[in-house]
Each structure stands twice: as structure tokens, then as C-alpha cells.
Simulated scan of single mutants.
Amino acid sequence: MSGRFQGRVVLITGGARGQGAVEARLLVAEGAQVVLGDLLEEEGRALAGELGPAARFIRQDVTREADWQAAVALAESLGGLHGMVNNAGIYVPRTLMQTDAELFERHMRVNQLGCFLGMRAVVPAMERAGGGSIVNISSTAGLRGSPGALAYSATKWALRGMTKAAAVDLAPRGIRVNSVHPGPIDTEMVKVWTNEQRAVRLSQIPMGRIGQAEDVARVVLFLLSEESAYMTGAELTVDGGASL
């Protein structure tokens, strides 16, 4: 590994498992310290223990401003805050007519409000650190219509627009904001699919396989690194060509 994140501190929401956990492992391997925010305390603490002194876990509900403040304070205690990944999200696929107001609002609070609160919360700390990089995890459902996932799609489209607006606002502050749009990725989130649904999704991917968390994590690391220093407001698709 290159050690390109030596001396950097990165906060990852939804960091206890899936994409967030893989991102944390890769970042630590490249010299970063990571703060893992999640509601899954047992899994989060186990991962932090596995990663050793370079990792800290904090119980975090991304819809609560107080939890964001605590997570940012923990990151700053490690030497500043240089990167943040808005990775936490929920996916409960329902069609328009199956979606009630409660389910729609639940998606909005976690997937959209949580990311908004996160971007606001990290700005002062990143400014104190001399700048930083925010990576928002959207979805290909935020680029095109996604059947049977009305609320999820709505929030991922919103996150796409929020990313671009924040990129303009924060560029003068030395903070970059980019979004990543994964297609089907083999994590806990897609276990709601039936075997038939999985087969249909697979048939739509030109590269012929469901994505792995590592496929997304390596793109996230690129956006957190200085290798993407002149990129902000960008949206990178990681879907094996499924949205072509």
C-alpha cells in the first residue's frame, strides 16, 4: 500500500459493515485513522477492534445533530478531520402505491436529512484541518428510474443535487464534494431480493457480475485522496455498465 492517507482522519457513517467496513479497512491499510459511525454497536466495535488503534467506533444516528457533533469531536481528537463518507442509508423497495407517508419520510430522514446534517457538521472541522473531501454515496437509482423503489430513488436523486450544490458552496472553503452511484452491490442491503429479482438484475449488467463492496470502496478512496484534487461536484457510476 502507498500510505497516501498517512496523517489523515476520515469519518465513515454506516461504517460497521458492507461498503463502509471495506472502506475503513482500505483506509487504515493506507495509513488513515478512521471513525466508524453506526447504530450497529456490536458489529462496529468488533470492526474497530479488528482494525486496531487506527480505528474508533461511535454509536451514531445520522438523523440526530448531537450524534454528528459527537462524531466530529471524536475525529478532531485524533488529529483533525480530512474526509467524510456519507455511507449510511436504508433501502426498503416499494412501488409508488405500496409506499405510505411513514416509509417515505423514513427514507428522507436517513438518506437525505442525514447526509445534509453530515455535510453541515463537518465543514468547520475540515476548514480547521486546511480543507477536506466529502463523498456522498448515492445510487444508480439517483440517475434513472428504478422500478419498485420510489422512496429510495427519490432520496438518491435528492442527494445527487445536494452534492452539486454543496460542491459550489464549499469550494471556496477548500472542501470538495463528490457523489458515487453504485449499481447492484453484493451487501446486506440487497438481501431483500428474491432469487428471481437477483437473476433479472444480473442479466442487465454488461460486465456479467454483481458488484462487490471493494469495487465501490476503491472509487471512494480515490475521491478522498489528492489524486482527485481537481474534482468536485462529480458523479461516478460503479455499476458494471448497467446504466448504459
Rank of each mutant, 00 (worst) to 15 (best):
A55Q: 04
E30P: 05
Q212C: 02
A32R: 14
V34Y: 05
S243P: 03
S203I: 03
A234R: 13
P206D: 12
V180G: 14
P124T: 04
V177H: 10
A166L: 04
E43Q: 14
M108D: 13
R45I: 00
T13K: 04
M1C: 06
V9Y: 00
F57L: 06
E227L: 07
E43M: 04
G240L: 13
V92G: 03
N178E: 05
I210M: 14
L224W: 02
E105K: 14
L27P: 12
V219P: 07
M84Y: 14
R198N: 07
Q98T: 06
V216F: 07
L51D: 03
G37A: 10
Q204W: 11
L39G: 06
V22N: 04
G183C: 09
G80T: 06
M119Q: 07
L223F: 06
E196R: 14
W157N: 02
D186Y: 08
Q19C: 02
V135G: 00
A217E: 08
G79P: 13
V34N: 13
S133K: 03
A66F: 04
G31V: 07
E235T: 11
L39H: 02
V62I: 14
T232Q: 09
V62H: 04
R201V: 11
G142H: 05
D61T: 03
R106A: 15
S2R: 14
A129V: 01
G233T: 10
M119R: 12
R59M: 03
E226A: 10
V123L: 04
G174T: 01
A217Q: 10
I12W: 01
L74Y: 06
G208C: 10
A229V: 06
I137Q: 10
R64I: 08
G132A: 00
P93G: 05
E30G: 05
D67C: 10
A154Y: 11
G49P: 05
A71C: 12
Q112A: 15
V9E: 03
S153A: 15
G80D: 07
I90L: 15
L26E: 11
L26I: 08
C115A: 15
Q33S: 15
A151E: 04
E235P: 12
E127N: 01
L27Y: 12
A151M: 04
R198T: 10
L47K: 09
I134P: 00
H82S: 11
M119F: 02
L40N: 12
V123F: 01
N111D: 15
G161C: 01
V219H: 06
E127R: 15
T163Q: 01
T194P: 01
N86I: 09
M126N: 06
F5E: 03
L159N: 12
S153G: 15
L159D: 09
S203V: 08
L11W: 03
A88G: 08
W68L: 06
L11R: 01
V22M: 09
A70Q: 13
Q33N: 08
V9D: 03
W157S: 05
V192E: 00
G44P: 06
D239K: 13
T232W: 10
T95I: 11
E43V: 01
G44S: 02
S77N: 11
R109D: 14
